[in-house]
Design a binder for these strands. Structure first.
Lengths: 405, 405
DNA sequence: TTGAAAGCGTTACCAA
DNA sequence: TTGGTAACGCTTTCAA
């Protein structure tokens, strides 16, 4: 029903800008969308002698609108089935025929319609990424690699932001499910929220509680332990960790690493800020924001430690801000270490000793994992014991640690 | 042809984990994809007396796989057309009937299939975002708002990375065109590259040359002019701007702002670094990277100015690094101002005076623009004179400027 | 090796 | 107001 015309003209030509009158048909009127640039192509047919009997294939196909497989098939003088096989590369097709189809496709500027393919194949070749925001280097560094990984496999990345609010997160899930993505890479905001049934899910960086989906996380336990050990090795016996909200798995891992280090060093269990005494490892919880870190540091000012372990880059930024406000020189009066490694950490004076999670590898592994889950499909069910992949990060030893006093 | 069964059971139940044998049919076999979680729902029909004659609607619909509109229609006891109208909300449908459909849809957990809709409506309700990378706060800040804007309009954001390489950029375009996105928000990498015919395009931050697509950019001309005026007002008469590659429109705008300020101040035309003399405004071009800024600063060390205008946050970072290496105290010996406003600018000592482009508004306007272009469709052609929307940014006056000497 | 045809789930037309 | 039906463009049988 779509309007196509055979023209005798041999040269390929492209006329841009206006809809071509001859193309008006019942279906052109159906949704009267005038293409911004009507691709009007008259193409010479390849100079073959065709093995098939029947009418000669057209020497030109004139086609408004976006060319379809049928257009290609007509130009190549084959059936749509053959054209499909030639282009997708699966199924038998004579090499000569295939070439003819491929030439025709190129000539018309044919592109397979993703929606039709998705409908027919029951897979969208799209993967959703659910992240709280894009202003966090944690997510974007990983997302960048994830996108590359997916792209290489022919999948596309659809991004939805979950914000800080569980309602936003639910909404983001809705849009993903509506879009029928084949899989979702998920950075949970609310670790207590249930995960929807539907496409395979891989969690990134953080993980939900009581849910059996694979997760790709940084080995913060080891990382923060080693980071804290650096602080302790410099001789500090009065230290504080500023951590995020305990409901996040990342916070728990980081605190656990801190705990292991201070226990081994004989500072006992990390305890709340109130604690006093010569040897002590304290712990303070804050919002994962600059303001949170700043407030925490200000609270500490009354009874300052000799070293601070800020368990996120934003917390560190806030702590540094507070130190500037309070006139506390770093590292002379206070040693400071961080987590994450934004570019400015290395340039800061003093440069910041930190544990850098392997964000790129996390993105890459998340990509591999979700692709594996997608191709496994129903075959590999959500395992009873979810696989948590802990990737080792890197300690960046710089100048922000000095011995106390 | 799809397998659905009527069951007498009244209670809604969901059986998870295994494919339900009774669901095996020709089409279940067709693509033997065992759903990870088969949603098996037996739902009580709403307790209405139906106004229609004919057979009573089923009291339950048993359906494997994802429920379709036909399932909903069957459960509600209406035709698919009616169900479609009820759910989409367009077209006539009796309120009572509509409620029945809606209840049935909820009961089954129905979701409209995006692929089918896209195929039928010839629009994917997806917008592509083509950016060089995601590690740049410029793009991500804008992308975040853009996503929100699109989401509110029922569109989804598909991200592709163009990298730094024109080949990557072409590939990214391919994936977008394949996916048949309804529009593209584009940050050009290669301003000389032609834009593909196809969906409407809005450029963000930078614009291509000789191409008539609308662009949303920061008013860097004004911003950098005012920024430079601040430097000049402090008494500096020997200043240098470190700019990016001249092929980028952003570089040209920023340099233009610099030029206007220095001309008005009687420093003449900005000239290359070689220039000597007491009153001079020099200009140096660098890669838009930390390394580029660092190298530029090192080159300046032989004949240092009293103030540096770094025309990107990365260039500034590099310049700061070089100053640390060279032992140049800021702002005492060298005033430094920047462009962009990553979080650490305000915390740095001295805090960085800078021109902050309106990234959020740019994202929002890009969203509005692409949505407008999409709904206008063919109606509003690419205008002969492309509309460039220059949004004013904000000058952040901080501590990094001191009078010279 | 090929072509014809069914069908993916939806929307929109049209006749009732 | 409603239901039936014909596409949308593609993949995959199935018979030739």
């Amino acid at each position: 029903m779509r309007s196509r015309r055979i023209r005798g003209s041999a040269a390929a030509m492209v006329v841009a800008g206006v809809a071509f009158d001859g193309c008006a048909s019942a279906w052109a009127r159906w949704r009267p969308r005038v293409r911004r640039t009507a691709a009007i192509v008259a193409a010479r047919a390849p100079v073959h002698t065709y093995g098939r009997s029947g009418p000669e294939p057209p020497t030109a196909v004139h086609c408004c609108s976006v060319p379809t497989l049928a257009d290609v098939a007509r130009l190549a003088g084959v059936g749509v089935g053959t054209a499909s096989r030639a282009i997708s590369g699966k199924g038998y097709v004579d090499p000569v025929t295939r070439d003819r189809v491929l030439v025709a496709a190129r000539e018309l500027g044919y592109r397979r319609n993703a929606a039709a393919r998705a409908l027919r194949e029951r897979r969208s070749r799209a993967v959703g990424l659910l992240v709280p925001d894009l202003s966090n280097e944690f997510y974007t560094s990983a997302a960048e690699v994830l996108q590359a990984e997916l792209d290489a496999a022919g999948f596309q990345l659809v991004v939805a932001l979950t914000g800080a609010d569980p309602a936003d997160e639910r909404h983001a899930w809705e849009t993903m499910l509506d879009r029928q993505v084949d899989g979702v890479v998920h950075v949970p905001v609310d670790p207590a929220a249930p995960l929807p049934d539907g496409p395979p899910i891989v969690q990134l960086n953080r993980r939900s509680r009581r849910v059996s989906v694979p997760a790709i996380v940084s080995d913060d336990i080891t990382g923060v332990r080693e980071l804290t050990e650096q602080v302790l090795a410099a001789g500090h016996r009065d230290i504080v960790a500023i951590a995020g909200p305990p409901r996040l798995s990342t916070t728990r891992d980081r605190v656990e690493g801190y705990r292991r280090a201070v226990r081994k060093a004989g500072l006992g269990e990390p305890a709340d800020v109130g604690r006093t005494g010569p040897d002590r490892a304290r712990l303070i919880s804050a919002d994962l924001t600059t303001g949170g870190g700043r407030d925490a540091m200000h609270r500490l000012a009354a009874d300052p430690p000799t070293a601070v372990v800020a368990l996120s880059s934003r917390l560190l930024l806030g702590a540094l801000k507070a130190c500037a406000e309070l006139g506390i020189p770093i590292p002379d009066e206070l040693s400071v270490v961080g987590l994450g490694d934004p570019e400015w950490f290395a340039i800061w004076r003093p440069s910041i000793t930190t544990f850098a999670p392997p964000l790129a590898e996390m993105g890459r592994e998340a990509g591999k994992a979700i692709l594996a889950a997608i191709s496994a499909d129903g075959a590999a069910e959500r395992p009873a014991r979810p696989h948590v992949l802990r990737l080792p990060g890197r300690l960046q030893l710089r100048e922000s640690i000095q011995p106390p006093g």
